[in-house]
Design a protein around this nucleic acid. Structure first.
Length: 599
RNA sequence: GGUCCGGUAGCUCAGCUGGAUAGAGCACCAGCCUUCUAAGCUGGGGGUCAUUGGUUCGAAUCCAAUCCGGAUCACCA
């Protein structure tokens, strides 16, 4: 039980015992952390009960405070300030908590049965390389997977690759017409960029053709429809669907190039998947579900043979599920894939990391599955995140305004290198160690930057301003960690020392305000971790870790550890920083951010 | 037009299941390195929490209306 909960219980218990004739609602008890300008650690708000008890707040506070001090071993003092009961937690409680926990390196809930959850993320198209927006998706998905794991879930990380459709045919036709047999190998180009270049090439050629047709007197619509390169791409798609071997071979070859490129990016991003689904395998799924739905009368057929569901009673629209010619649409295959996933892993929960532009789509998907009586419907959760935009608006691949993921990673690592060198902090590292350090700092900064904002909110990234390595950043947390490691090195202690080294600590040692704050702050980590999982919000770990590192820096500035006033104090402070470092490593580790021991 | 999301310091964001004088970071100003890493610490200026009304002991937080911005409402994916 968290300390805050214990305080709440204690207050509830005190109210019940002091006023036996009145019944209280536990939910009305508000316990907050005491504001720094007042004495105390936790505060009980008295106002909710003054009316019920016909008592002045201060009078009630005095009664409660005295009762708690006498009957409850948690508190050493209380103070009443205008309707707030500020309670001071005993130093003994804090030191004893620290003694019991400081060697922990694993935090979170134990795994329970029946908690298999799939997290689908990344889910790229195979016609272009990954960009900044994908990175937000990927970091969110990877972080959420690890956060859920740390909270007792069995997680299956899945990637659903959109490897078929008109977009890849566009790259294919451009390659056929313009490449003259060039390959990633022959040009020394990363495979996904190579294919992406032909996608751009397609769009350039297409634009030219449309312009030409319009100049020749065609209207815009028909020009867009009849441009030769577009017609050729659509022809390719038809051949692909018919199973034309030559087309399939080229398609497989070009997708192969893309996957080679993606693998390189994924590796550097530090993410992986347990299961990869390909839309070329799943795009025909869902039809059977639709037929069942027709039989059950949940769906209906229009005169042209198209199949629909009426969601107007739920405040939505009618939605097409099958075209008149019997072919499926996007949502049809999503229905099929949802059922497939559920069957593959007997899932209790299925998380979709998808941008908020698809909020409506997922809402409809879930609703349809529910109406069809599919058991997977209930477990669907849309981890909806805001798009990453440039100061000029949305990124447009066709206008070349996308911030490329590979470029961005290289830039960040380079920035880390520049700043490390500028600060003159390269002494004592080998060349390979430095490269690793730059990677740790650069990638850490990038991940933190994209994860520190509430996923729901859209974010604006200005490529002209490099991502900062000061302030609310991973670098700040890494630096605090490196400082702690430096102290431990000096004391010849391991990062996770044996508890026996510290058994001499008497619990009676008096705590300074900063020492106490640090301990009380670390006590909150498990609750924050649980909250991050329950609210699907990794940014909570960023906020918490930054605040903890910040507090450590103040602590570090005021209190010497190796030259502490007494041996007891030294032992105590060592325990505090060991525990702090372990929490920072754990929290950042869940976000895929490494903390160096030296920087 | 319907639905949904957002609007907090110059900028980027916390706080939103109601609680004390609304907090961080960046930027700006002033201090702090013979002492465990100054990628740090301390202090300062900077706010009509979009607007108006309501609920109440108490509202950035809840409700209503309005204004502004975005997403979505395809036989696209």
């Amino acid at each position: 039980m968290t300390l805050a909960t214990q305080v709440k219980h204690a207050a509830f218990d005190a109210l019940k015992h002091l006023f036996t004739e009145v019944s209280f609602d536990y939910a009305h008890i508000t316990v907050n952390q005491t504001k720094p300008e007042f004495n105390g650690n936790y505060t009980v708000v008295l106002f909710p009960f003054v009316k019920q008890l016909r008592m002045k707040p201060d009078e009630l506070g005095k009664k409660l405070g005295e009762y708690l001090l006498e009957k409850n071993s948690l508190f050493s003092a209380f103070e009443i300030v205008s309707g707030f009961l500020n309670l001071t937690v005993k130093d003994e409680w804090c030191t004893s908590y620290l003694l019991n926990h400081f060697t922990e390196i694993s935090f979170g809930r134990q795994c329970k049965a029946d908690c298999r959850v799939m997290v689908e993320y990344s889910s790229p198209n195979t016609n272009k390389p990954l960009h900044f927006g994908h990175m937000r998706n990927i970091f969110l998905g990877a972080a959420m997977s690890d956060i859920l794991k740390a909270n007792g879930k069995q997680v299956i990380k899945a990637n659903l690759i959109n490897d078929r459709g008109i977009h890849i045919c566009k790259s294919m036709i451009a390659w056929m017409w313009y490449a003259d047999g060039a390959t990633p190998q022959s040009t020394g180009t990363k495979g996904d960029h190579f294919v992406g270049d032909y996608y751009v090439r397609f769009n350039d050629a297409y634009k030219e053709e449309v312009k030409g047709l319009i100049a020749a007197g065609r209207d815009e619509k028909s020009a867009e429809r009849d441009a030769p390169i577009m017609m050729a791409a659509q022809d390719l798609l038809r051949k692909w669907e018919a199973g034309d071997q030559q087309v399939r071979d080229l398609w497989a070859k070009m997708n192969g190039w893309v996957y080679e490129g993606f693998d390189v990016s994924y590796k550097r991003l530090g993410v992986s998947f347990d299961k990869v689904y390909y839309e070329s395998d799943t795009y025909l799924l869902g039809k059977k579900i639709v037929e069942d739905g027709l039989r059950k009368g949940v769906l209906f057929k229009k005169d042209d043979g198209s199949v629909w569901i009426d969601l107007t009673d739920d405040g939505l629209d009618q939605k097409l599920l099958l075209r008149g010619d019997g072919t499926s649409v996007y949502i049809t295959q999503d229905l099929g894939t949802a059922v497939l996933k559920h069957g593959d892993y007997n899932l209790n929960q299925s998380v979709y990391v998808i941008a908020d532009e698809q909020n409506y789509h997922i809402q409809v998907l879930k609703l349809i599955l529910k109406k069809l009586g599919e058991p997977c419907a209930e477990g669907i959760y849309h981890l909806s995140y805001g798009m990453v935009e440039l100061p000029t608006g949305r990124m447009k691949s066709r206008e070349g305004t996308v911030v490329d993921a590979d470029d961005m990673m290289a830039e960040m690592v380079n920035l880390a290198k520049e700043q490390t060198e500028a600060a003159g902090k390269t002494d004592g590292f080998s060349g390979a160690e430095l490269d690793k350090l730059y990677e740790t700092i650069g990638m850490g900064a990038l991940k933190f930057y994209l994860l520190r904002v509430d996923p729901k909110k859209k974010m604006i990234f200005d490529p002209k301003e490099s991502i900062d390595l000061h302030g609310f950043t991973a670098t700040f947390i890494q630096y605090a960690h490196a400082r702690i490691c430096s102290i431990l090195r000096k004391e010849n202690l391991a990062l996770v020392p044996d508890a026996t080294a510290f058994q001499s600590l008497p619990t009676g040692v008096e705590l300074s305000p900063l020492e106490k704050e640090m301990i009380l702050n670390t006590e909150q980590y498990p609750a924050i971790l649980a909250d991050a999982a329950d609210s699907y919000n990794p940014s909570l770990l960023c906020n918490y870790s930054f605040q903890l590192a910040q507090q450590f820096n103040s602590f570090y500035d005021v209190h010497s550890i190796s030259k502490a006033e007494s041996e007891d104090k030294k032992q105590l402070r060592l325990m505090i920083v060991i525990h702090t470092a372990a929490i920072l490593r754990h929290a950042m580790g869940l976000l895929g951010i490494r903390l160096p021991e030296k920087m």
